[in-house]
Structures are given as C-alpha cells and as structure tokens.
Amino acid sequence: MIYLDHCATTPMSRPALEAYVQTAESFYGNEQSLHDHGDYARQLVRHCQAELASVINGEASGIFFTSGGSDSNISAILSLAYGNQARGKHIITSPLEHPSVYQALEKLKTEGFEVDEADVKPNGEVSVISLEEYIRDDTILVTICHASSETGVIQPLEDIGAVVTKHGICFHTDAVQTFAKIPIDVNKACLSALSMSAHKINGPKNTGACYIAPHVSWQSIYPRVVHQQGFKPGTLDTAGIAAFATAAFHMHQQQDQLYAKWRNMQHWLLEHINNDHAVLIGDKNKRLPHHLSLRLHGYEGQWVMLHCNRQGIAISAGSACKASYTDPPKSLLAMGLTAEEAHGLFRISFGIDTTDDDLNALAYTLNQCVPSVKPSL
C-alpha cells in the first residue's frame, strides 16, 4: 500500500529502531537511581535533551519528556497557566489548534480562566492584528500552532512573538507538525514553550517532549512530584527518548534536502490533478512542504479517502485525533469556507520515502473522481 498520511504518523526509521534496541539492551537503568546503571541512563537522557534543544536553538534544561504531542500540549498549557495565574486568567488561542489544545483550555475554563480565539485570514494565517486586539491587562498566555495539521499553513510565529513579548505574555506553540522538518528558533520567535512529538519524525509512538524556556514561570500540575523538576511523574523511557533524539537528528540533518524534494512533489501534484475539479485549501506558499490540504467539488473528504484506500493509497480526511468526522473542521469555517466545503477536506502528506511513482498513482486515482463530461449533441 502507498502511504501518504505522514502527518498522522510515520514509520520508525532504521536509525531510530537501532537506537531503541541498543539503549534498551545497554542503558536499562532507572535514570533516577544513584548507582552506575542509573547514572549511565541519566547521562544519555541529558545528551538527548541537548540534541533536541539544539534543533530549536533552545537550552537543554528546558526539555521535558512526555508521552507525545497531545501530552506535551496539555502539560505545557496547564503548567504555564497555573504558573502565571497570579497575573491574570485570560488566554488567547486560534480556531486552528489541535484537539489537545482545546482539551487543556476547556479544563482551564472550568477553573475560571477565559479564552478568546483570534481571527483567521482566508489563506489560513492567524491575523496578528486580531490577536493583538484581544490582548488585555490580565492576558497571561497565547497558544498558537506553528502549522495547522488540517490546513498545513505555517503561522507567523515571529510576528506573533514580537507582539506577545511587548505585552509581557507567555507564548506557546504546538510544533508537532513542524519540529525538525522546517526551521524554528525559539529565541527569534520569542517562544516561552514548544510541543513536539517523536512519531511525526520517524521516531517511536508514545514519546514526545515539551520545551519551556528556563526563565519562564510555570507550576507543576502534579503535586509532590520529583521527576523532571516536578514537571511530570514516572520513570523515563530511556530507549524511547534515545530513538526520539536519533530521529530528530537525522530529520534535522536532511531538512534542506527534504524541503526541496517535498516542495517539488507539491508542485508536481498540483500540476497533475484536475485543477477545474480539485481546490487547494490554504495558502499555496506559506505551507508545510510535505502537506497538501485539498477538496474535490461534489465529494466529501471521507469519500475521497475511502476511494483512495480501495486503490491501495492511504491518505487522511483530517486530523486523526478528532473525536468525530461529522462536524466540519472549525479551522476551515474560520477561513470562510462553508460547512459543505469544509466537509470536503482531505489531506495528503509525504514522508522521507515517498516516491514519484507514489504521486503518479495518487494523481491517477484522484483524477478518476472527476465526473465524465457528456459530449454535446
């Protein structure tokens, strides 16, 4: 089967698998233990923290390990909100976020926090002007994704960071879809925190990390926890962490080559599908290089996904973490699409092993969906 759903998850790479096995065999000690086996594991974890931090130009001491991207988002948002609530309880986000962001914010709403969503431009970018208009004296946190998993549009983090910093507000971004794939500098973007996940970059599932800048105030959501400076309880999965850092290193090393390859694939596919029938959703240029969000006139995205699946091609009808496909994606409604148009969303996402033959097969399959034109009498 041709796999073109790499924004949902990716297969583990050979280097990541080897790192996992070697670590599980040789560094099985609990990194909290005081004996030598514990110290070996602890030193390896510290090395992995430094490796991951280097990808985002952050500090190793700001890396905290989690069970994945959703856990990173929820843990970061709650920790920052609780750590800064003495200054206020107002948070700003967008309609473009991952479900885990809304889950954290819904919990905070039950605790007296207020949440506003900034407007979105028709091209899928958050309006920085709208975001700034929502800022109040009691605003303590802004959380905006680096790129939406549904639209693939890259957000203007540096512009947002400049505004947020001017007002002394914490700034978190969900970088699960972008980490190691496109450049990100936490200092240039004035980011307080960033979420990342291993299984989006050919690492293991159930492994992720959250970066919180060492100078930022945060409060643990777990009482009396000693692990990871109190950030999260539980013995660290050293093997998973090593595989994560290895996957990040290799993805980051290939970043420029993969960017060029994926951009070419994007352009080729857009040129070879029926443009009278297929519509690109979101900005054509300010988007992830490996991601295409499309709709076909007259078809629901889930139908297109199932049609491709019958032809041996795996694509997506939206975020794999959505509770239901019955509701149209709010990100697309915020961009001005109708509910019917939003239901047409399907997503194609390339990986490191995607080939030209894969794209040829996909273009042929999508073009099969174009209604036949009856000849005039």
Rank of each mutant, 00 (worst) to 15 (best):
T173A: 14
F179R: 12
H250Y: 11
C210H: 06
G168Q: 00
T238G: 08
L194E: 05
N187R: 15
V176D: 03
H250C: 06
P183M: 07
G168L: 01
C210T: 06
S220L: 03
D237I: 06
T165S: 15
N202Q: 11
A180K: 13
A260H: 13
F171C: 14
V163K: 12
F249G: 15
N206M: 04
L191Q: 05
K181G: 03
G230V: 05
A180M: 09
V216G: 12
M196G: 03
K200L: 03
T246R: 11
Q253F: 08
S197C: 06
A209I: 02
H172Q: 08
K166W: 08
T246F: 08
Q253Y: 10
K205V: 04
G208Y: 01
N202F: 09
H227A: 14
A248R: 08
S220D: 00
K181A: 09
F171Y: 15
A175I: 02
A209P: 02
T246L: 10
G234M: 09
N206D: 13
L270H: 10
L194G: 04
G161Y: 03
L270N: 14
F244S: 09
N264V: 07
V216R: 15
T235D: 13
A243V: 07
K181V: 01
H267C: 09
M251K: 14
D237E: 03
V186W: 14
L270S: 06
G240T: 00
K261Y: 09
V226I: 11
C210R: 12
C170Y: 04
C190R: 15
H250W: 13
I182P: 00
T238E: 04
G203Q: 07
I221W: 09
T165K: 13
S195T: 01
C170S: 11
A189W: 05
K166G: 11
K232S: 14
S220A: 04
G168C: 05
Y211N: 08
G161V: 00
V216I: 15
Q255N: 05
S217D: 04
A193M: 09
I241P: 00
H167P: 01
M251V: 02
L191H: 14
F179A: 14
N206A: 13
S217L: 07
G161R: 07
Y222S: 12
P214A: 10
I221A: 11
